[in-house]
Design a protein around this nucleic acid. Structure first.
Lengths: 354, 354
DNA sequence: TTGAAAGCGCTAACAG
DNA sequence: CTGTTAGCGCTTTCAA
């Protein structure tokens, strides 16, 4: 149980060849004839040899690893992570993932760890785009000369020396609003949740402000009563649905729900409460997470495009790693907003029990 | 921008000391006098030196890294991950996380990667507890002599040579059922979702079967009509609430909801629909995720205990790593079930080990 | 306290 | 095709 770990030297001794021959055989070097290779591989297996990637990396100077730094373990990172995995699998790279739990100190430590571990690239969705920790993290990464692609966009877009991949909230909101206008809606309500704690609440504050501006810019009235501000973190959409069903017309003919949960909860709530969407009231979602393929929700919505962002980010990173793109100047890749129309509903549109 | 990376040799040259002195200074070796240390650190910073952990690991033979292999990025892993992080931070270890997306091949590849990267320990929540890939993964890990703690319990509990930390579904269900009986309920309904795809559906099938057995064992009748089987992945609890509100008494006085989502959706649905819980109907949740501290839900429930499991797992792993526990025989650490009433802890048995 | 030297396990350039 | 050798960047004895 406690024997020393095997090395290529042990395998060499066992097979009577020189250890560099073992090294070659194990890496399937075609210069070693097939039978010898096989013999060596077999011996390696038998001895329980496990290649040492630490030594390997040191020797040829490449770790074949990329670091992923994320704020937390949320569903919107699932699709991007999937893209990272697929792409790096194909390129024979592996991922090292860190979650900093929205803690900038942890984030910085993690990035340093990546640098010291000589990952060949980093994809980073930062906690914040400012502050001393942020600036320091950037300096660290630059000192370490590691290619970095940021997930998201910095507002002013000037001070970050790395590539960025993201979407502009204002563009997405404008697209959504104009979509509703295009469908003839003139009294549009907003479902939001500005009082929630943490990042989600902050996002809602930002979105509501932007949207207000867009209403104004279009000369569209926005009644205070038509802003539905949820306080239930998980089922706020339901409460809004209940509120709507209590209201007699005239009421908004459409609701722009400013996040995924809210939109879906609202949709479901309206259905359960007997208010027909979209006949009696339309719902437009925002940043809906998930794959179109799944098409689980008959919910028309401004798409989050997280998979697309992930894909673009990892592709860009590998471009840099492969030297196909100079690291300067850093590019800002803006993912255009898109509306996905619901209706591609799953079979069990009508829920049933048995 | 494209200069070579600095090494301790560069720092040594810059400061005029021998490179081993630099190595010592950088690791805060007290044999190097304070002023020299400072001078060296400053020079290192100035040159943009970043220590090379690959080389460091090779030299002293310890990577100070532990590998975490998880099935996917779900909320029930958030608390355990937090425990892993906290504990390894304190021990000056770092985490390398992999998600295999319920793909056993990916899982195995990832574990091999851990082995080749010489992680010092692995915490592993397996996709399945059987099958050739599983067996192979175990063999790999054993060959690599890596300490492993499994998250979860194998049903028969015999064939896995590693420590396991988990809870027994039957115990948890029994605790829940007896809790309801203790509160005087005699007609108890079940909210489940056996037809969902994937792991969640499978879990429901298992839970429903176990619970049926428990009803029988207690001579308790279980009406077919009182099994509410949701088909909506996200808002099934709502549909069940709607169904319940349609039913005139006599109806169940309590519903045992067999997962977190279902329970919370049901609870919220009942409230929105005007059925008072628990006055008119009681809801007992199961495997509710989250921190008691948050106490966000006034939902009495059999707790998932994921944080506790994470804590026990990482502690056990470090015990092995530190040699404080022999790796044989592997222990099975069973986390006792617990009911949390509306966010406050009810019962806390001492953990049993076998 | 610091310098010198021997590795850690492997890759890769160069001979043979 | 295979052996030889020189590192990769660092830690860690062992001297001095």
């Amino acid at each position: 149980m406690n024997g020393k770990r095997m090395t290529i030297l042990d395998v060499a001794r066992e097979t009577g060849v020189y250890y560099s021959t073992v090294s070659r055989a194990l890496r399937n070097d075609r210069r070693i004839p097939e039978p010898t290779r096989l013999r060596i591989r077999l011996a390696a297996r038998r001895l329980g040899y496990v290649p040492n990637r630490v030594a390997r990396s040191l020797a040829h100077g490449a770790t074949h690893t990329i670091g992923i730094m994320l704020t937390d373990m949320q569903s919107y990172f699932v699709a991007p992570m999937d893209e990272f995995q697929n792409f790096s699998d194909r390129s024979n790279y592996t991922l090292s993932v860190h979650f900093c739990s929205w803690d900038q100190r942890r984030e910085r430590k993690g990035l340093q760890h990546f640098a010291e571990g000589r990952v060949e690239g980093v994809i980073w969705a930062p906690v914040q785009w400012e502050g001393p920790e942020f600036v320091q993290s950037i300096a660290d990464l630059q000192a370490a000369r590691i290619p970095v692609v940021m997930l998201g966009l910095q507002r002013d877009q000037q001070s970050v020396p790395f590539h960025q991949v993201g979407a502009k909230p204002a563009d997405k909101l404008a697209l959504g609003l104009d979509y509703l206008l295009g469908r003839g809606h003139r009294r549009i309500g907003i479902a939001t949740a500005t009082n929630l704690n943490g990042q989600r609440g902050r996002l809602h504050v930002e979105r509501l402000a932007l949207l207000r501006g867009l209403f104004e810019a279009r000369g569209l009235p926005l009644l205070a009563d038509d802003i539905f501000n949820a306080v239930d973190e998980d089922y706020g959409g339901f409460d809004i649905a209940a509120e709507l069903s209590r209201r007699a017309p005239p009421r908004p003919t459409a609701i722009f729900a400013l996040d995924d949960f809210l939109a879906r909860g609202l949709m479901k709530g309206l259905r359960v409460l007997g208010l027909k969407a979209p006949e009696e009231i339309s719902v437009l979602g925002f940043d809906v997470v998930g794959d179109e393929a799944a098409g689980r929700w008959p919910l028309t919505s401004v798409w989050l495009e997280s998979r697309r962002m992930g894909e673009l980010a990892v592709k860009q990173l590998f471009k840099i790693i492969r030297g196909e793109a100079t690291n300067t100047p850093p590019q800002t890749i803006i993912v255009p907003p898109r509306i996905v129309e619901g209706g591609s509903v799953r079979k069990n549109e009508t829920d049933r029990f048995f």
